[in-house]
Nucleic acid binder design. Structure first.
Length: 1099
RNA sequence: GCCGCGGUGGUGGAACUGGUAGACACAGGAGACUUAAAAUCUCCCAGCCUAAAAGCUAUGCGGGUUCGACUCCCGCCUGCGGCACCA
């Protein structure tokens, strides 16, 4: 006997032995298993009990897998770059390196006490130059592939963190980190072209064993939608060059094209600015310029303040003087500028179809624009009757005779096609306009054979009465609206509003048809028609076309194809795919991050400047066509999402850079001299007409010619632009320098020490102030050059760390290929759900790039992903210093032992669920361990102690194995408790059974299991033994409990041998006295026998 | 608004593909041991009605399918998470 259970005496001891003997470095075995945790950010606060939950789970799995004979990789490391360390550094004037080192030490010590199986020889730290050397290397690979580019677009800027942010770093329009409302700020940025991978990121999800919610979040985030670009020609406009000009709109509902009654462009749309900028030869065509300018001003202000406000009111201004021509029918429709259209999604312009889009409907109603239905719901699957319509007519007629005007809420068009009127899902509401005549209305209904069937109390004073006739038609009559002072206008609101006011609402519903609808809905499942009403208009996702000329009668789906085909064949449209995913703004203007390994060389740029014009096109075939005969071609691309936004203060001889996006492709112009803006613009516009460079070959076949075509931009002109407020964006002069990658052999570019970590706030990182670091020589020409001073975001290092664990000390590659092939992909990745749309998208993106360049062998890094649920404090809030509700794992280990704490965290509930901490719960698992400890005193070698509960032992083997594999730790632990309770009831426990039990327990409570295993006389570690296998013959029980029920209610049960026949069961059940009572002497109508389970008697 | 996931005792939760709802544990109650307390052990513990048994009611609410529903279907309510003027 081993005395009292005292975790202190055994836990440290075994932790040391495991580490010394390398118990968990059995890498030579055959099958591999890679168990991975999302590595922590080593904060100054240390661990709280929530952190280890995920780590315990991977440890449990790792230990079981090792017992099952796998080679198990289970590493840990530190994601240590990031703001908190930097902020701490600013405050305390310590180097972030120092705090990071200290925090890591604390974390490591805390984790050590819990007895994890980490191989610390593989520890990595993202701030270690030997690590970030490879982070920089990956960046260079992106740069070489054109996936990293310099952009001058306005980006999201957090004024408090003083850095640019990615779209992913936002939470409800505020900085995720500090909660400050962000701004848009134009500045030079490094951006990663993640959208190039959008489709693959989307498709790859299909094969992953990940929680559905995470996959769904990623799908949402990527936001792929297939649609059509439709070209609306602009008319009523003086065309200087007789050139046609178009507004391209993006729509996913091209089937509603005939319902388009106007076009809306975003305030940022080039059309707006272009029409407004000057009175030169193009003219503007827009008559109400001032009004529009005022509107643009207004929207600019609005976006900063109340952008997030719910239910923003829709505002807009018509562009007077121009019209847009609907390419499908030649109809001219007005054009509006309105900020309910987003400038940075689609084409920044939409075709408005108020009949089939709620936003357009709201706008159309406000500005009195026509509404034209072009699609109607498809009710062909429903068996229609005319009954509802008849009933409606009847009611109306009878009402009219008595001088009552009845309003119908809900679409009659819908009623017409369906033969039934629906509002919402099941009824149509009638309103008696003149509330004073409510009593008369009631009289109408009763005269038509309706009688009261039900009364619903809506509130203290308000009651709803339901009448029905004998054909099953129901009418709801709401309370009298007269008392509430509603006016005619209120009737235009939707029914919700009215009932909210206690309006007199009469609901007409045909009960039987509603039932049919339910059945149909079930059969059709996802095809079920989805629609809603607004002021009598029908919003239909899927239906068939009406009012659409030759397309009428087609289904929405077919029409989308057919109309697109037609537009395409005429050059007036194009099938396209759009994403919500934005490019990844990758640079940060902060200190504590990986330096971006690039150099800006002015000398190289100067050489380049000898060539008068350099064009960069992303698509190779285009620039080749354009630049044939030119001296220099640079393949680096610039990707502006916004066209020609930046106009600097330029003087003659300065370098100007224009970025524009006429057709979605990306181009960069560099023009050695400053040119007159107007003429440059003309270049853009002409370019729009013909992508394939007609204008270049015609007008600028040589660089010299191009230069001749332009004259210097006059200061007057710049002033005018500014005064007009047309270029409301920050003016920023741009300098051309050539970006040169730091050669791989010179990596890492080490983060230098600085005097002050303080962000500069100017859009430059603190690194910019270190002259002797910034100034360097160009790797290409050897001339003076400046280093890139932006740093990488925190997400960089974590986007590939799982690869480095495999081969952490490799000097020649990010990971050895053979080792990579052995260990990848990760078999179980555990971490918080909050990483759904950042880390987990970024890492997949990087991994796919690495796959493309042959650095890794798998297309996806994480085969299986499991979310760990939060551990909340006992008050239900998140654990935080701020609330003073933090539980420290060290205290738990001290008071109850690591094993009890591990066991509790696995037992407390479903692994992925958020659950409040309960220290009492730890007491429970500690008691269980005490019980197990005592059981060792009962262990006996004698064979006669065996067999009794062998069945239970082996069923527990199956249960625990399955549960661990499926992350159902709570029920796994529970079954161990059941087995221990059973052992306890026995006189003695067979040594063999106890050995099985210990091995099942060992992943959860390794220290105790190891100790007791030794106690049993084993000389080698329990973790070098093998996982128990269940004996199938012991799994079946000899006797089973059969339940007898009468009409499904349990009345009796009995034990019977497992091989009893159905007839045996039946006989026994019928013989039961308890059952006889319920049979009431009658013979059961039917007897259902489920072997091994139950007998049900139907009376 | 759209999408996804949930809603079971005083509490955390269990129930496999429809077959004894509440395993396991916490808290609570009663008792044993003890001078006493802690620890430990035994028993009770969904609600209603009961002396007890029996019975009835119960898995957010209302319907449905089925011999039988926490489980499947329809509709609602509600909580959480994601996206959100994304055309």
């Amino acid at each position: 006997m081993n005395g009292r259970y005292n975790p202190e005496n055994i836990e440290g001891k075994w932790q040391k032995i495991w580490e010394e003997q390398g118990t968990f470095r059995q890498y030579g075995r055959g099958k591999k298993f890679y168990a991975l945790d999302m590595f922590p950010y080593p904060s100054g606060a240390g661990l709280h009990v929530g952190h280890p939950k995920g780590y315990i789970s991977t440890d449990v799995i790792a230990r079981m897998k090792q017992l099952q004979g796998f080679a198990v990789l289970h590493p840990m490391g530190w994601d240590a770059f990031g703001l908190p360390a930097e902020q701490y550094a600013i405050k305390n004037r310590t180097h972030p390196n120092k705090t990071t080192r200290e925090n890591v030490a604390t974390f490591k010590q805390q984790l050590g006490r819990l007895g994890f199986t980490y191989d610390w020889d593989r520890e990595i730290n993202t701030t270690d130059p030997e690590y970030y050397r490879w982070t920089q290397w990956i960046f260079l690979q992106m740069f070489k592939k054109g996936l990293a580019y310099e952009s001058y677009e306005p980006i999201i800027w957090c004024p408090s963190c003083q850095t640019g942010l990615a779209n992913e770093d936002l939470e409800n329009g505020a900085c995720e980190r500090c909660g400050t409302v962000v701004e848009k700020k134009p500045m030079r940025q490094w951006v990663l072209r993640i959208t190039d991978y959008a489709d693959r990121l989307l498709e790859g999800l299909g094969g992953l064993d990940w929680p559905e919610s995470i996959k769904e979040s990623q799908r949402n985030w990527i936001g792929r939608s297939e649609g059509t670009i439709v070209k609306f020609r602009i008319s009523n406009f003086e065309f200087p060059n007789e050139a046609e000009e178009y507004i391209d709109v993006f729509t996913t509902r091209v089937d509603t094209l005939f319902g388009c009654t106007y076009v809306v462009v975003a305030p940022e749309h080039p059309l707006v600015r272009e029409r407004m900028t000057d009175s030169g030869k193009r003219g503007t065509g827009i008559k109400n310029q001032e009004e529009i300018l005022a509107y643009l001003e207004e929207t600019k202000k609005k976006t900063e303040m109340e952008r997030t406000a719910e239910g923003r009111e829709k505002t807009g201004v018509r562009l007077e003087g121009i019209m847009a021509v609907n390419p499908i029918n030649g109809e001219e429709v007005p054009v509006f500028v309105a900020d309910y259209v987003l400038g940075d999604y689609g084409t920044g312009a939409v075709m408005a179809v108020p009949a089939h889009d709620t936003r357009d409907a709201v706008f159309a109603r406000k500005y009195g624009l026509p509404v034209r239905q072009s699609v109607t719901p498809d009710f062909s699957d429903f068996e229609r009757t005319e009954k509802t319509l008849q009933a409606l007519d009847e009611v109306r007629k009878a009402a009219k005779e008595r001088g009552i005007d009845i309003w119908v809420l809900g679409g009659l068009s819908c009623a017409f096609h369906a033969g039934i009127v629906y509002r919402g899902h099941d009824d149509m509401d009638l309103i008696v306009k003149d509330a004073a005549t409510q009593s008369v209305a009631l009289e109408v209904f009763s005269s038509l054979g309706y009688r009261e069937v039900k009364r619903k109390k809506l509130s203290e004073e308000l009651t709803n009465v339901v009448y029905a006739n004998d054909q099953g038609m129901e009418i709801d009559i709401g309370p009298n609206i007269g008392e509430f002072g509603l006016t005619d206008e209120d009737f235009e609101e939707d029914e919700k509003v009215l009932s909210g006011h206690g309006a007199l609402v009469l609901s007409l519903r045909f009960a039987r048809e509603f039932k049919e609808y339910q059945l149909q809905g079930k059969k059709r499942e996802k095809d079920a028609v989805d629609w809603e009403y607004l002021n009598g208009k029908v919003f239909v996702d899927d239906g068939f076309l009406v009012n659409s000329e030759i397309f009428s009668g087609l289904s929405s789906k077919d029409a989308r194809e057919k109309i697109t085909e037609k537009l395409e064949s005429e050059g007036r449209g194009k099938k396209v795919v759009k994403y919500k995913l934005r490019e990844w703004v990758f640079s940060r203007q902060r200190y504590w991050g990986e330096p971006i390994p690039l150099v800006h060389c002015e000398s190289c740029a100067a050489n380049e400047a000898a060539v008068k014009l350099t064009l960069n096109f992303r698509e190779e075939k285009i620039w080749k066509l354009l630049l044939s005969g030119k001296k220099t071609v640079e393949t680096r691309a610039l990707n502006p999402d916004e066209p020609e936004r930046y106009f600097g203060d330029v003087a003659e001889g300065d370098t100007l850079r224009f970025a524009f996006k006429p057709t979605g492709e990306t181009k960069l112009f560099r023009v050695k001299t400053a040119y007159r803006f107007k003429d440059v613009r003309e270049l853009f516009e002409s370019e729009k007409k013909d992508l394939h460079g007609k204008i270049f070959s015609r007008e600028f076949s040589t660089a010299e010619e191009l230069e001749e075509s332009y004259t210097a931009l006059s200061p007057d002109y710049v002033k005018r632009i500014r005064e007009n407020g047309l270029v409301g964006w920050e003016l920023e002069p741009m300098h051309v320098s050539r970006v040169v990658p730091v050669p791989e052999s010179e990596l890492p570019v080490v983060l230098p020490d600085v005097e002050s970590y303080e962000p500069t706030g100017t859009g430059e990182s603190p690194l910019a102030g270190i002259d002797d670091w910034v100034n360097t020589t160009c790797p290409v020409c050897g001339g003076p050059a400046k280093r890139e001073t932006n740093t990488m975001p925190q997400w960089a290092g974590s986007s590939w760390y799982y690869l480095r664990y495999i081969d952490p000390k490799n000097q020649d590659a990010i990971v050895d290929k053979k080792d990579e092939q052995k260990w990848m992909p990760v078999d179980a990745y555990v971490g918080g759900a909050e990483h759904a749309t950042r880390h987990l998208i970024y890492a997949r993106f990087w991994h796919k790039l690495l796959f493309d360049i042959g650095a890794v062998s798998t297309d996806e890094p994480f085969r299986k992903l499991v979310n760990v649920g939060l551990i909340l404090a006992s008050d239900g809030r998140k654990m935080s210093k701020r609330w003073g509700n933090v539980i420290n794992p060290d205290d738990m280990v001290r008071d109850f032992g690591a094993d009890a704490m591990r066991l509790y965290e696995m037992f407390m509930g479903p692994f992925s669920q958020n659950i409040s901490w309960s220290t009492d719960g730890v007491i429970g698992t500690r008691r269980f361990l005490e019980k197990v400890w005592k059981l060792s005193g009962k262990v006996s070698d004698s064979a006669d102690a065996v067999r009794e509960i062998d069945g239970l032992v082996h069923r527990t083997v199956v249960k625990v194995t399955d549960d661990i594999d499926a992350f159902r730790f709570n029920t796994g632990v529970s079954s161990l408790m059941i087995l221990a309770n059973a052992f306890e009831k026995e006189q003695s426990v067979a040594k063999e059974s106890y050995g099985i039990f210990l091995r099942l327990l060992s992943p959860f409570a390794p220290h105790m299991a190891e100790e007791l295993w030794t106690e049993l006389g084993n000389t080698e570690s329990i973790f070098l033994s093998s996982w128990p296998e269940a004996d199938p013959t012991l799994l079946v029980e000899d006797t089973v409990t059969i339940v007898v029920s009468v009409n499904g209610k349990v009345r009796d049960s009995f034990e019977i041998s497992a091989d009893a026949t159905e007839d045996d069961l039946k006989a026994k059940a019928l013989g039961s006295e308890k059952v006889a009572k319920f049979l009431d002497g009658k013979e059961p109508k039917r007897v259902i026998v489920i072997p091994g389970k139950l007998v049900n008697l139907v009376v």
